[in-house]
Amino acid sequence: MNKRYIKLLLLFVVVSTFTACSKEDDVDISNLNLKGDTWVSGPTDNWLYENFVVPYNIEVKYRFDRYELALNKVLVPPREDKVIPVMETIKQTWVAPYEQEAGDAFIKTLSPKQFVLVGSAEYNDNGTITLGTAEGGRKIVLYVVNNFDKQDESQVKQMLHTIHHEFGHILHQTVMYPQDYKTITTGYTASWNDFSLEDARSRGYITQYARSNPDDDFVEMVSIMLIEGKTGFDAIVNSTPASAQALLRQKEQIIVGYFEEAWNIDFYSLQARTQTAINAL
């Protein structure tokens, strides 16, 4: 079979296929929904609009949108009755302290423009779970929403830990913290989860995850200092060996200086406001 015949045969097949589809097997698309999901706004939507969209231009997505999340993970949608308690707590214990300390322009300018709520945790192959993620300062995804209990201080602190961690990334991606921070401790490791919390703190890291890299070390320090308050943070530091105490205090001083110089924020005042807000719950 010569090349010219092969080409003609291929052309015939293509033309025949096109003809068959267009003339004989018309596809019925009358039942396809090409407009996407639609819903009627309810009390939850109205509350989110008044408390986050209007004052801060922050969208809160709680209806399940698979394309906002990792496609290779099994995840559960959030329960609607958990949405307002979660976001009310965020407003009272994260937004308000920053707003009181730094002014409303600070939150309006630097806050992520979207929160995405997920009912379950995201489970990772290495045995860890993801409680939150931040994407380029635009979006924060919060997991484990269905377990949230506003009256449980440990759960409030866990959620705030995630929020402060992710917001810390937004801050340092906007204005970088001093490079000296990266040289205080140098034992960073990708296998941070193989070591205990006690081991991490004995080496000058406030949490196990802080050992993963300098950026996460920085935001873990910020988060723990805020959710535990000065008394709680001092208790953690004082429970470690003297060598680790010195390292943690060096990190603390760089963070305090960073917030003052980069954002004109008195970190200890912010710390006190955050504790007051948590206790008020």
Score class of each variant (00 low, 15 high):
residue 47 W to A: 12
residue 49 Y to K: 14
residue 49 Y to M: 12
residue 49 Y to A: 13
residue 49 Y to H: 14
residue 49 Y to I: 12
residue 51 N to R: 04
residue 51 N to D: 09
residue 52 F to S: 01
residue 52 F to Q: 03
residue 53 V to T: 14
residue 53 V to K: 12
residue 54 V to N: 10
residue 54 V to K: 11
residue 54 V to Q: 12
residue 54 V to T: 15
residue 55 P to N: 13
residue 55 P to L: 07
residue 55 P to I: 08
residue 55 P to W: 01
residue 56 Y to W: 11
residue 56 Y to A: 04
residue 56 Y to I: 10
residue 56 Y to F: 15
residue 57 N to C: 04
residue 57 N to D: 15
residue 58 I to R: 00
residue 58 I to E: 00
residue 59 E to Q: 15
residue 59 E to W: 07
residue 59 E to T: 06
residue 59 E to D: 14
residue 60 V to L: 01
residue 60 V to M: 02
residue 61 K to M: 01
residue 62 Y to I: 02
residue 62 Y to L: 03
residue 62 Y to Q: 01
residue 62 Y to A: 00
residue 62 Y to T: 08
residue 63 R to G: 04
residue 64 F to C: 04
residue 64 F to I: 05
residue 65 D to W: 11
residue 65 D to M: 10
residue 65 D to I: 06
residue 66 R to L: 14
residue 67 Y to V: 08
residue 68 E to W: 06
residue 68 E to S: 13
residue 68 E to Y: 05
residue 69 L to P: 05
residue 70 A to G: 08
residue 70 A to N: 14
residue 70 A to K: 05
residue 71 L to E: 14
residue 71 L to A: 15
residue 71 L to S: 15
residue 71 L to N: 14
residue 72 N to Q: 12
residue 72 N to K: 13
residue 73 K to F: 10
residue 73 K to E: 11
residue 73 K to Q: 14
residue 74 V to P: 06
residue 75 L to H: 06
residue 75 L to C: 09
residue 75 L to K: 06
residue 75 L to Y: 11
residue 75 L to S: 06
residue 75 L to F: 08
residue 77 P to W: 01
residue 77 P to R: 07
residue 77 P to Y: 10
residue 77 P to I: 03
residue 78 P to N: 07
residue 78 P to E: 08
residue 78 P to Y: 05
residue 78 P to V: 12
residue 79 R to Y: 13
residue 79 R to L: 13
residue 79 R to W: 14
residue 79 R to T: 13
residue 80 E to W: 11
residue 80 E to R: 13
residue 81 D to K: 07
residue 81 D to W: 11
residue 82 K to N: 12
residue 82 K to W: 15
residue 83 V to F: 03
residue 83 V to Y: 10
residue 83 V to E: 02
residue 84 I to D: 09
residue 84 I to N: 06
residue 84 I to R: 03
residue 84 I to H: 05
residue 85 P to K: 08
residue 85 P to A: 09
residue 85 P to C: 05
residue 86 V to H: 00
residue 87 M to Q: 00
residue 88 E to G: 06
residue 89 T to Y: 08
residue 89 T to Q: 04
residue 89 T to G: 02
residue 89 T to M: 10
residue 89 T to A: 09
residue 90 I to A: 04
residue 90 I to K: 01
residue 91 K to I: 04
residue 91 K to R: 13
residue 91 K to T: 02
residue 92 Q to R: 15
residue 93 T to K: 04
residue 94 W to L: 06
residue 94 W to D: 02
residue 95 V to M: 05
residue 95 V to F: 03
residue 96 A to W: 02
residue 96 A to V: 03
residue 97 P to T: 01
residue 97 P to C: 02
residue 98 Y to G: 00
residue 98 Y to F: 07
residue 98 Y to R: 00
residue 99 E to M: 11
residue 99 E to D: 06
residue 100 Q to K: 06
residue 100 Q to I: 03
residue 101 E to S: 07
residue 101 E to R: 02
residue 102 A to Q: 01
residue 102 A to N: 08
residue 102 A to C: 02
residue 102 A to P: 00
residue 103 G to N: 03
residue 103 G to S: 04
residue 103 G to P: 05
residue 105 A to D: 15
residue 105 A to M: 10
residue 106 F to K: 03
residue 107 I to L: 07
residue 108 K to N: 12
residue 108 K to F: 07
residue 108 K to Y: 12
residue 108 K to G: 07
residue 109 T to S: 09
residue 109 T to N: 10
residue 110 L to S: 05
